[in-house]
Design a protein around this nucleic acid. Structure first.
Lengths: 157, 157
DNA sequence: GGCATAACCGACCGCTCTAGTAGGATTTAC
DNA sequence: GTAAATCCTACTAGAGCGGTCGGTTATGCC
């Protein structure tokens, strides 16, 4: 697996926050119930998102979490990176200044690291996919395929 | 990390085999020495490659391994998949018949899995990068000391 | 002020996977 | 026969994952 459930749960949490229309905070408990995820585990994940500046929190009664920015301005690479840590295809990849990529194997041989080309392409593909997707897209995607539940509930109530 | 050292070591092993000009088999010991990798661990990895039909072996003295096909015909997605197992971005992704993708969360809620769009894009990026790179490219890349920008951006960009 | 609510924090725990190691059995060239 | 090599199974230390638990702090409401 490329990613663990940390990314899965964390992204679902972000989408859930993105769904909320108003500016009132959403409690983790309600998110946990809506997504059927363990509350105590979500606490750890949301802490990472908060430290990354992606969500803001208000403590106390009726407190909860909100998106720190509009969903359309949140790119998913920052979300996934906050949850999973640095996204590199391989342990030997290190980000260097000026966007260069270092490979720790390159010094221990007389030739360039033979795998570097491959991992750079893979990393390019992943970051392109993640950075090219916004939270707003995921929110819209998840509500669009919902079978017009809003209308049904509205007329029934 | 997206991949473990299994992919790293295994790919380097494949490149090493691809470098050899003749049709004589190369012993694992010489590969281990050339790449500075533990022999006993490489044995496990090469077993996966052999079961996937990517290399052939000849036993006994002066035995060793060879590529089962020309390096230009070996796409790196099959290599990495043989080493790491099925490449899916997330545990909930299952390959279904006809190339469809199933998500195990889609049945337990009243709306489509909100993360599916994201993971499908990521998987697309990764498989495109892996399938768009051949072993021959890596062999050629590793013999040239200075990586050119065109090579990196090459066919899989 | 007291109470319920909810964010915050750190410790712990069972499990699986990784990255090997070890020891032997089998096959083959010379 | 012997050395070189593949092949095979079992084992292990360590790390990370996926949680759980208990407690602390902050806040709205009566």
């Amino acid at each position: 697996m490329l990613f663990s459930t940390k990314a899965e749960y964390g992204v679902r949490l972000m989408v859930e926050l993105g769904r909320q229309p108003g500016s009132q905070p959403v409690s983790l408990g309600s998110v946990a119930e809506a997504e059927n995820l363990p509350l105590s585990y979500l606490e750890h994940l949301v802490a990472k998102l908060r430290k990354a500046g992606l969500v803001t929190s208000t403590r106390g009664a009726h407190g909860g979490y909100r998106l720190a920015k509009p969903a359309a301005e949140i790119k998913m690479d920052t979300v996934v990176e906050a949850l999973e840590g640095q996204i590199a295809p391989m342990e030997c990849f290190h980000d260097a200044p000026e966007g260069k990529v270092l490979c720790s194997h390159e010094s221990d041989g007389d030739h360039a690291c033979s795998t570097k080309l491959l991992w750079m392409r893979v990393q390019g593909g992943v970051t392109k996919a993640l950075a090219g997707t916004t939270l707003a897209e995921l929110v819209e995607f998840s509500t669009k395929s919902e079978p017009t539940r809003e209308a049904v509930l509205g007329s029934a109530a």
